[in-house]
Write a protein that binds this DNA or RNA. Structure first.
Length: 476
RNA sequence: CGGGGCGUAGCGCAGCCUGGCUUAGCGCGCGUGCUUUGGGAGCACGAGGUCCCGGGUUCGAAUCCCGGCGCCCCGACCA
């Protein structure tokens, strides 16, 4: 157990806060709701960004950058959009020492500034599709901020695309949702449910919102990424039209999709344990930490020489040698466990003499997670172990999620289920039933999963016939 | 915006109720030196403070009173 870390089971949200800060992912900033992402946390974000960016490029997207400030009148062009976001807008009223003629919103999202540009750039079906992504910061004035999960300013990427046909736009929405799900599962080792949002949970102004939903270590749900179908609504609001091959002037079909620094919160809450953070090897800023051990000067040079060789053999991996002289090995073990480095190599005089090293897996704490490996096949063993950790984290997360996902038969079992985790239940589609659940249990519909049983059932709330099963859970 | 809690050294806190016993203290961390180093090392010396801000009461305020500001936690809103 890490010194001074609140156990996860005792107070999960306190545990989360302590891990984020003690692992040096982030810290509070002077302005309420804002945070500083520290180098270690930012390195994690950079890894997320690189991986996603590559996938966006592979699916034909280009990066661009749109401005931070949006004239208020632009936001007002789409009624539901402005209504949804106005409570959380930061607005600039002065510039250059003078009151502005028109106030500027600090973007809460960029549809309203990108739309008018697309209107200008798109004339013909030959200009379509437009497939643009931007990496940016956005600001939403939140009532209750939490590090990474809900901060006033956060970093994200937002893809914005325009298409000639509904079918093409819908394919885009699904494609990007698949990209996110693949990324979450294969890189972050986080299993997710893919599905559509209920009307109540749909992005302001969107015709439909899709998301990937993950279960955190306390059984609550977190929306890890979203993909929105705007139909032709935003195109109408911003006058994004094109002349089709048949000569007709039509409105584009537009989409947007995003993943934010909130995802880091998901990684922390899915994999962490009472010792601290556990980072999935494929995203960890430091995949392997080497802790050299020595007693005297002679041992020190022998050990360090062996360490340099190991470091060279681990080429291609992100390796950190912790050769700080003012900390004991035991201290370093604990610190790197707190900071979530997936794999640790311990090597001292005894190991050097025996031409071996000790591998310690972060996902298996204590003695069971340690393995003595001959130096000759250390490199292979390290790579193999990192893969094994990646797989083990995914499997553990999936087993946990499955064990806390119930299919309750009646309302009493349902309320028990959402107190602990996910409840997969039939829903008639009525907003009243959705609201009742929220009022009585605080759980909401996280998504309507794509995968549905063949036959229908009865609504868990009102008992009327229902065509769809949905996932209810308390959410972040 | 409601309900609760807290502002004292870099961090975590004690002192406040019952004003003076403190030159404002303790633990961790930090600096220097020596001894240490296979699961959070030991000793010695040392540096570090507008006691959140402003006013008031008093011979005297970290402590009592009034006003402000800020932060955290719990609810309503949310990626």
């Amino acid at each position: 157990m890490a010194e001074g870390l609140t156990p996860r089971g005792q107070d999960f949200s306190r545990w989360y806060n302590e891990v984020v800060r003690k692992a040096q992912l982030a810290d509070y900033a002077p302005v309420r709701g804002c945070m500083v992402i520290r180098p270690y946390g930012y390195a994690l974000w950079e890894n997320i960004r690189e991986e996603l960016d590559e996938r966006f490029k592979e699916t034909g997207h280009e990066n661009a950058y749109f401005p931070l400030f949006i004239p208020i009148s632009f936001l007002e062009k789409e009624a539901e959009h402005v209504e949804g976001f106005s409570p959380e807008l930061a607005v600039v009223t002065h510039g250059g020492g003078k009151e502005l003629e028109e106030s500027l919103a600090v973007r809460p999202t960029s549809e309203a500034v990108i739309g008018p540009m697309y209107a200008r750039w798109i004339q013909s079906y030959r200009d379509l599709p437009v497939l643009i992504n931007q990496w940016a910061n956005v600001v939403r004035w939140e009532m209750r901020p939490r590090l990474f999960l809900r901060t006033t300013e956060f970093l994200w990427q937002e893809g914005h695309t325009a298409h000639a046909t509904r079918r093409e736009a819908e394919a885009e929405i699904q494609r990007m949702l698949d990209v996110y799900a693949d990324f979450a599962e294969n890189m972050a080792a986080i299993p997710v449910f893919k599905g559509r949002k209920s009307k109540r949970e749909t992005f302001p102004g969107a015709a439909a919102t899709y998301s990937i939903e993950a279960m955190m270590g306390d059984g609550r749900a977190l929306q890890a990424a979203t993909s929105h179908d705007f139909g032709q609504d935003f195109a109408r609001a911003f006058d994004i039209t094109f002349q089709d091959a048949d000569g007709e002037l039509r409105h584009c079909w537009t989409t947007s999709w995003g993943l934010s620094t909130r995802f880091i919160g998901a990684i922390v809450m899915v994999h962490g344990d009472d010792r601290g953070l556990i980072l999935p090897p494929r995203l960890a800023p430091i995949q392997v930490v080497i802790v050299p051990i020595w007693k005297d000067e002679e041992a020190r040079s022998a050990v360090l020489e062996a360490v340099r060789k190991i470091e060279a053999e681990l080429d291609g991996l992100s390796v950190k040698v912790d050769d700080r002289e003012n900390f004991t090995p035991g201290y370093k073990f604990n610190e790197w466990e707190l900071r979530g480095a997936p794999l640790r190599i311990e090597i001292g005089p005894r190991d050097v003499a025996a031409r071996q090293a000790v591998l310690a897996r972060r996902d298996v704490p204590g003695r069971e997670g340690k393995e003595i490996v001959p130096l000759d096949n250390l490199s292979d063993e390290v790579r193999r172990t990192l893969d094994a950790i990646q797989q083990a984290l995914y499997q553990r997360a999936q087993q946990f999620r499955d064990s806390r996902t119930a299919e309750p038969e009646d309302y009493a079992a349902f309320t028990d289920a959402v107190a602990e985790g996910f409840a997969r239940a039939w829903w008639c589609g009525g907003a009243a039933c959705e609201q009742k659940v929220k009022d009585e249990t605080t759980a909401t519909i996280r998504c309507i999963p794509f995968e549905q049983p063949a036959a229908g059932g009865k609504c868990i709330v009102c008992g009327k016939s229902a065509e769809q099963q949905v996932i209810f859970a308390r959410a972040y």
